[in-house]
Amino acid sequence: MIKKILPLHCFIAGVVVLFFCPALLAQTVSITGPFSSGELIEHAKSHDKQEVVFKGEVVGEVMPRGNFFWVNINDGANAIGIWAEKKLASDIKYAGDYKTTGDVIEVVGVFNRACPEHGGDLDIHARAIKIIKAGNEREHKINKDKIKLTITLSIILCLTLILQVYKLLLRKKLAK
């Protein structure tokens, strides 16, 4: 029956392809991770050109460059540069700094130990970016202990200045 539909050599080739397919797929499009920045930097050679998953907070600024952009994401230990198409950045609203907690994003992309396109930078060329946790404005409550310390020190400084003026006058008196 099969012989009628397919010639024998095609059938054998099909079986071979089906048999090795999972192994081939694992080698070409395997996505490994998520990895920490420490792991990626420490074992950069073994992850080179591999598709990896990396999670972290967007820090600094999203820097557009033509149809692409650079964004640096920090996983708490190190920040790594992500190079991606502009359309992938549209969901990123917050970048972390003193007043802001940046969006936490998950990046799927190709890791480069020394990217030939970017002068040897260790970076990830993103294929997909997903917002894991939206960022927000950080609240910094004024520390009351610091205010108390400031007042105390201001009083001490005034006393020190009075002492200095007094000593100056005394020296002038003695000089006369």
């Binding site: 004024i142 610091k146 400031t150 020190l153 001490i156 400084l157 020190t160 002492l163 200095q164 000593k167």
Partner: peptide
């Protein structure tokens, strides 16, 4: 908060500076 940090730092430095001179 950073302003207070610098205020405290400046005050301590001034107190020490003026005290040493006096």
């Amino acid at each position: 908060n950073p302003a207070l940090d610098f205020f405290i730092g400046t005050l301590i430095t001034l107190i020490l500076g003026f005290s040493l001179q006096a």
